[in-house]
């Protein structure tokens, strides 16, 4: 997967999490996921379509989800599974939306689909043209995992691809 596609997601995750949680964040380990995706806790999946297509999954453990919810709300919230899912979906929506904004302004055209709670324990295995990059973002509320699997849309015009990779 090309770094020019990944970097906006890293930047957006860093900026949105730091802003929403009002604390410094740090990007931890990166790894290419060779095996099928395995859910860690509460996960939200956002599909993107357009010049680049694929999906991004946000995944946090339930305790982290509740801490994030309370920080984003500016007050302590009572724990509930629905709130955990809502929080992770909204966080994913904000990060992906900001990343896609940056990519659109660079000339890529995307559509972001509404977030969905990812309930499966496993996901699809990476393929040659859809490698998944997994990264961990350390925050004051806990670790947030982002799993990005994107590829160039094959229907895209070759000259457009050439223009953005120059």
């Amino acid at each position: 997967m090309r770094m020019e596609l990944i970097q906006p997601f890293i930047n957006a995750a860093d900026a949105v999490l730091a802003d929403s949680l009002q604390c410094p964040t740090s990007i931890g380990n990166f790894s290419m996921e060779e095996e099928a995706y395995r859910r860690r806790g509460v996960a939200a999946l956002i599909a993107v379509s357009g010049d680049i297509e694929g999906r991004i999954i946000f995944d946090v453990d339930p305790q982290t989800a509740m801490r994030v919810a309370s920080r984003m709300a500016g007050q302590e919230l009572p724990s509930s599974p629905d709130l955990m899912c809502e929080t992770v979906c909204e966080l994913a929506n904000q990060v992906i939306g900001n990343a896609v904004t940056s990519l659109n302004d660079q000339g890529f055209h995307f559509r972001v689909h509404p977030p969905e709670v990812h309930t499966s324990e496993h996901g699809d295995k990476s393929s040659e043209d859809t490698e998944a990059l997994v990264m961990c973002i350390e925050t004051c509320s806990g670790k947030v995992f982002m799993n990005v699997a994107l590829r160039y849309n094959r229907r895209r015009q070759p000259e457009q691809v050439a223009a953005v990779t120059d």
């Binding site: 949105v16 929506n93 904000q94 990060v95 992906i96 939306g97 900001n98 896609v100 904004t101 940056s102 659109n104 302004d105 972001v112």
Partner: peptide, 9 residues
């Protein structure tokens, strides 16, 4: 009020 704030949008 949206996270998707690119110019065209």
């Amino acid at each position: 009020v949206s996270s998707v704030g690119y110019q065209d949008n």
